[in-house]
Simulated scan of single mutants.
Amino acid sequence: MTTITADLFPTSPLALRTADPAKQARVRLFAAEQAMAAATVRDILLKTLAATRNLAERQAVMRTAHQEVTTWRYTLAARATGRLGTGIAYSAERFRTPITASTTNYDRLGPVGRLRDGATWDGPSHTYRGGTATPAYDAMATYGKEAAARFAS
């Protein structure tokens, strides 16, 4: 059986909304929590699925496992003091709201100023100004360039 480790959960650059290496390291530690949760769910699934007799039972087991993981992630988010960065208000509820239930589930592509560490809101221009680039900012800028190039061809 494959050992589930933190290495299997690389941190998305979109989670790295700070230029501070110490804060980035703290964000990356979440991979260890993900690995522990994944190993627990895997063990439960292996044991439970081995005892199921039909498709309906297997589907019920999978739905239950998904709900337990969703609840685990929501509980962690509810305990958090917020996310790093500026802009959109933090809401733990988004971790248990299905994508299909949200009418505002989108991300801007391109240089998103609120993802710059220390950026400040400029009312007259309706943009974030200044700050230091973060991995999240760089990723969104790259994604924006790639999307523009794709639509240009």
Rank of each mutant, 00 (worst) to 15 (best):
T2W: 07
T3M: 08
I4W: 00
T5Y: 01
T5P: 00
A6L: 04
D7I: 00
D7G: 08
D7P: 01
F9P: 05
P10E: 01
T11Y: 03
T11H: 08
S12W: 00
P13D: 02
P13F: 06
L14V: 01
L14T: 03
L14G: 03
L16E: 13
R17E: 02
T18E: 09
A19G: 12
D20N: 15
P21Q: 13
P21F: 12
P21E: 13
P21I: 12
K23E: 15
K23W: 09
A25F: 09
V27E: 08
F30P: 00
A31P: 04
A32W: 06
E33Y: 10
E33P: 00
A39G: 12
T40A: 10
R42P: 02
D43A: 14
L45I: 09
L45M: 08
L46W: 02
L46V: 14
L49F: 02
A51G: 11
T52L: 02
R53I: 07
A56E: 10
A56F: 07
E57Y: 01
V61D: 02
H66W: 02
H66S: 12
T70M: 11
T70W: 01
T71C: 05
R73T: 08
T75V: 11
L76A: 08
R79I: 05
R79P: 08
R79G: 14
A80M: 15
A80P: 00
T81R: 12
G82V: 09
R83G: 03
R83C: 03
T86K: 07
G87T: 05
I88K: 14
I88M: 05
A89K: 12
A89P: 09
A89L: 11
Y90H: 07
E93F: 04
F95K: 03
R96N: 14
T97D: 07
T97C: 08
P98A: 15
I99T: 13
A101K: 15
T103P: 10
Y106D: 08
Y106Q: 12
L109P: 07
G110L: 13
G113E: 07
L115D: 09
L115Y: 11
R116M: 10
D117S: 14
D117F: 10
D117I: 08
D117K: 08
G118A: 11
A119G: 07
A119W: 01
W121P: 05
W121Q: 06
W121R: 06
G123N: 04
P124F: 12
P124V: 11
P124S: 13
S125I: 13
H126D: 11
T127C: 06
T127Y: 02
T127R: 15
T127V: 12
Y128M: 06
G130E: 09
T134E: 04
P135A: 03
A136E: 06
A136K: 05
Y137Q: 05
A139V: 00
A139C: 00
M140T: 03
A141H: 06
Y143S: 07
G144V: 12
K145Q: 12
E146C: 01
A149F: 01
F151M: 10
A152Q: 10
